[in-house]
Amino acid sequence: MTLRRAYHSIRLLLIRSESGRAEYLKKKHVLGGVGVGCRWGPWLVPLYPELIILHDNVCVHKSAHIVVHDMMNNFLQRCAPKADFGSIEVLGPVEIHDNVYISMNATVMPNVEIGKNCIISAGAVVTGDIAENSIVAGNPAKVVGRFDAYLALRHINASKNRIFQNQHLPADVAEYAWDAFRKKHNRTNIERDMSCNS
């Protein structure tokens, strides 16, 4: 790891909020570009961060990965010592347009452009370009839905949710969530604290 990358990674570790980390990356010109209102979860700065461009309101979960190079030539060279693969490393920038959410454990591979208004579902491995207004899932990632339809669904269901401060869950809101769970699963009773029974 280069000293610069290690330094920025330590600085990121010390910033609590994801929006604060994105602002840091923008201010220090660590990435190729960072737009307005982005959120950056990972503590580790990816290799060759200058090959990553985030447009406005891009959210990257802390366990997501954006990969902009591969070392396969290095491996293949050792498989076939007489072959000539040129560089041991191949680069491929990643550009992510406005309003994109990269969920937990998702991986974006090199040379990928993600259009605006997209959700990359948990665990997805994005190997090719993603058209705008898409929800993708799986490995390799495939389109499984439309962003606008999902937005509409969440919007019309707004009244079913209870508002609370992020990361501070009041008991009544937790109970409301369990009630909804019981109703959905047709259960009348769920033991809340199993350890009390033993």
């Binding site: 439309r146 606008d148 339809a149 999902y150 937005l151 509409a152 669904l153 919007h155 019309i156 009244s159």
Partner: peptide
């Protein structure tokens, strides 16, 4: 939820319309 998403998508694609946020209500 799934049926709603499919209905929304079918309407948007078949009628070629964009439904703005303020119209996304029950």
């Amino acid at each position: 939820s799934l049926s709603f998403v499919m209905i929304f998508t079918a309407i948007a694609e078949n009628y070629g319309i964009e439904i703005p946020l303020e119209e996304m209500k029950p």
